[in-house]
Design a protein around this nucleic acid. Sequence first.
DNA 1: CACTGTCTTGCAAACGCATGCAGGGGGAGA
DNA 2: TCTCCCCCTGCATGCGTTTGCAAGACAGTG
Lengths: 332, 332
Amino acid sequence: MTTPRKVTSLDVAKRAGVSRSAVSRVFTPGASVSARTANKVREAADALGYRPNVLARAMLTGKSKIIGLVVAYLDNHFYPTMLELLSEALERQGYHVLVFMASHSASDIEDVVSQILDYQVDGLVLASVALSSDLADRCRASGVPVVLFNRMLETDGELAVVSDNRAGGRMAAEHLVQLGRTRIGHIAGWEGASTQRDREAGFMEGLRTASLGLFAREVGDFRLPRAQDAARRMFDTDTRPDAVFVANDYMAFGVMDVLRAEFGLSVPEDVAVIGFDDVPAAAWPAYALTTIRQDTQAMVAATVDALMAEIDGETFASPSPLPVTLVKRRSA
Amino acid sequence: MTTPRKVTSLDVAKRAGVSRSAVSRVFTPGASVSARTANKVREAADALGYRPNVLARAMLTGKSKIIGLVVAYLDNHFYPTMLELLSEALERQGYHVLVFMASHSASDIEDVVSQILDYQVDGLVLASVALSSDLADRCRASGVPVVLFNRMLETDGELAVVSDNRAGGRMAAEHLVQLGRTRIGHIAGWEGASTQRDREAGFMEGLRTASLGLFAREVGDFRLPRAQDAARRMFDTDTRPDAVFVANDYMAFGVMDVLRAEFGLSVPEDVAVIGFDDVPAAAWPAYALTTIRQDTQAMVAATVDALMAEIDGETFASPSPLPVTLVKRRSA
DNA sequence: CACTGTCTTGCAAACGCATGCAGGGGGAGA
DNA sequence: TCTCCCCCTGCATGCGTTTGCAAGACAGTG
């Protein structure tokens, strides 16, 4: 076992016949170094395999170049997609993503955030997670910018990037009534989520405009089994809905499955189904799910813009809700 | 804007009337501190909201408590699942996951690994990514244990955790012949992957045992569109296969879609389809995909065992390939 | 009471780097 | 050739910890 002694800037300096400072400057963009020493240093660095230690640098500058991401449901494909985009976008800016699972108890989110702060992250994005506002305060007290992704807080003032969920809900309703459906149900996600509330509010608006009421309502909590139970409850009845707006695609798949497999209903003939998100699988022919598309790309772009601005000390206002679009497929 | 000055161990020390060392020791399990000072310190720490700076600690101890994960396809649900499990398992050990996307060009994997090492990660897991062996050398030279997840290297000696892909391939073949299928095709993943080679090798073995040959073969590179093209090529012919083994579930979904939607074939009546992985969607009634299940749970468990052992300086032998199981659903 | 042994505790050095400050060297202009 | 100025460079300090070392406190024993 060879001793893997770390090669430090001092090693490079000695080999190049310069001082540590010179080495440091070579690796600090925008520092004043002559081309000659820069070359010597780079050469020595290559020979020794030297690369600056991000952690040490972080101590001095206070910038760790890492962004914490806390995420809850990785089984809903919306989030892996978001993670991929986010990570790539941040890498382009020289940042990287440290992942934290907020999987279960909503209370230990407290704990999770503490752990994150221990890593001196430069920023924090909370995806699909309820942030108590005093927690937000604590983060801001630590000087860590936090942006909520796909969630909003009552108490605004928090940086949040969201789609125009209300408009999306309205579009869903309009599409369904335009199709001539009248017995329209809704399967809700977790009711603590602003996303859910806005989507449903918009949906109700849309129905009301058409002088329709909600025919049935169940809640699926954004979880697959719960959504399926919700569907079972909703359709185990004499007069069934002829359309249902499901609060996200992930649940919609589960709902379509029980409609077809357990009730022998066909979509969209017997019942139209419309989802929300437009995750990749929505386009798969097996579901061909009509849905309200969130522009994930734009959402993460807005997220990193916000982060970068806040990190640079500028204060950044939450962008207005991002536009969504109805994508018609065969399920409605 | 309040100045968010960081609260350091010195602040706590002063408030508690002790030295920095005392504070440090309180937060270092197994250090020698009297109960009395421990209480004073903890009290002061709570009052000030002090938490040790992981980065500073990392500098001294050389342990950053972060594990780098480089991952390629997040659209294949196998990997988000794995990420979730891995992150949770590591959090339980006090580690966290720093994500790196190896998205595209296989060459910049070189670059990615360099970036990772800059963060002084304590370990590295490469999921579904081809590691050149000199790259592996460089990591080991830096003293960073690396474990390959779901991939093996020709030159063994690398730590790798894989399923028994060969056995899995064999099981797929056996199941298909047992079903009486005779014109059996294979849609391969990326041929650079050991996973692919092993699955196919096992599959061929299984066919050979039954005195059958491969009826058709196309490659889908583990990507959805490519897999669909592969399926089109394979079935746009007079005598079609009556069964196909697809190298992973993700591609299998795409294949089933084109078979049904474009060729009007029904699965499994016209053609039996069998996949590999058993991702959650495989259980969805729309696909009800018969598949070879990888025990993701066991795989990540083995991965963190390996990491922890190597970090503790023990050398750890690659575990033997983990058992897979055939899960029969309706597609075959 | 003196001595020894066991716990605690503080001191100071180290980890690897960035950066303000001041000094040195060289080029340009006269 | 001399002066001035600017560009480079080295020195030293600090970032927030951990940890070996040695000294202090205290109890127990003879």
